[in-house]
């Protein structure tokens, strides 16, 4: 069976959920071979094997952290040459897309980004994408070279399927042009203890209606009662009420949770672009005419300062 390269997104060997989704999707096309760059390959291999990786190609070098993107492209290219895969899958993160873009140029292959589903087809993998702020759904495929495809988080439910997950060292030589952009310093984000926005099953977002940084505690309280991640509209982010890393939308994160709750958000097209593929959508807005109500499964026309705390209390009561 043909092999499929899967780029592993991890933090020091702790594999992130989107990678398990990629492994699950990769199995529809062939045998997943994981590519692990940086420290922690042995720890990661156990999980990668559990989700179907027959092999884990591992490379660790300081270049991966010291320079932007390009060294990882060198490594993926080395893996590509070692395996001759049927496809290369990466997560649709900002970095994942950039690695994919450069790899596609380098190996002379077509690229598809932001797939929300993937299946085997007679002429290679078929990717489903959601375009124009999710008003259209398309099916596409790569017609030249080895398909390079990035997949959005929450596109598939990870399914375990034990495979060997044997770690093999991958030899990588870094091109002179790959060390052009130095990472001079790196300030890691502080963890909030809440689920990762793009991976969360439930997202609670606040917008301009939240009316102040201090009031975001109302949104956070609801999120915590549900075990959810917190999101924000650009209006709330631009006002300085919540960090940009939590922005949902065209220029923020694209989320696709089981449940999306929007409070004090009007539902502008750029916001919808980042949340419209959510399974169930709920909104609280005091304006009955707000466009967000066109999307909802359930909406409450009302003041979020009344409705949200009442909902939080009720959730807590019901959960005991």
């Amino acid at each position: 069976m043909a092999e499929v390269l899967v780029y592993v997104d991890h933090v020091d060997g702790a594999v992130r959920k989107p990678t398990l989704e990629l492994l699950t999707l990769a199995r529809r096309i062939g045998e997943p071979v994981a590519v692990h760059l940086g420290a922690g390959a042995d720890a990661a291999a156990a999980v990668l094997g559990e989700y179907g990786a027959v092999k884990v190609l591992a490379a660790d070098a300081s270049e991966f952290a010291d320079y932007l993107v390009a060294p990882k492209v060198d490594a993926l290219e080395a893996a590509y040459n070692a395996v001759s895969p049927a496809a290369v899958l990466l997560p649709s993160s900002a970095e994942g897309k950039e690695i994919a873009a450069r790899l596609a140029v380098r190996i002379g292959s077509g690229i598809i980004t932001d797939a929300v589903d993937l299946e085997a087809g007679a002429e290679g993998p078929v990717a489903t994408q959601s375009v124009f702020a999710a008003s259209y759904s398309t099916k596409s495929r790569v017609t030249k070279g080895t398909p390079v495809i990035t997949v959005k988080p929450n596109s598939a439910a990870p399914e375990a399927a034990q495979a060997a997950g044997t770690v093999e060292q991958l030899a990588v030589s870094f091109g002179e042009k790959s060390t052009g952009t130095k990472v001079v310093s790196r300030t890691p984000r502080e963890s909030t203890g809440r689920p990762e926005l793009t991976e969360a099953a439930i997202v609670v977002s606040g917008g301009r209606g939240v009316n102040g940084a201090e009031n975001f505690s109302i949104i956070e309280a609801l999120a915590d009662s549900l075990g959810a991640a917190v999101g924000a509209s650009r209006a709330a982010v631009d006002a300085g009420w919540y960090p940009h890393t939590n922005q949902v939308g065209q220029t923020g994160k694209s989320v696709s949770p089981q449940l999306y709750i929007a409070a004090g958000i009007s539902g502008a097209i750029q916001h919808r672009a980042g949340m419209q593929t959510s399974k169930t959508i709920v909104a609280i807005n005091k304006d009955a005419e707000a466009p967000i109500f066109d999307l909802v499964d359930y909406g409450v026309v009302g003041d979020l300062f009344e409705v949200v705390p009442q909902l939080t209390d009720e959730v807590k009561t019901r959960k005991g």
Partner: peptide, 17 residues
């Protein structure tokens, strides 16, 4: 979807949903 107007029980109705 269903859109209700909050008459004091909006949060509870939402919880029910």
């Amino acid at each position: 979807g269903t859109v209700v107007k909050d008459e004091g029980e909006g949060g509870k109705q939402l919880a029910e949903f």
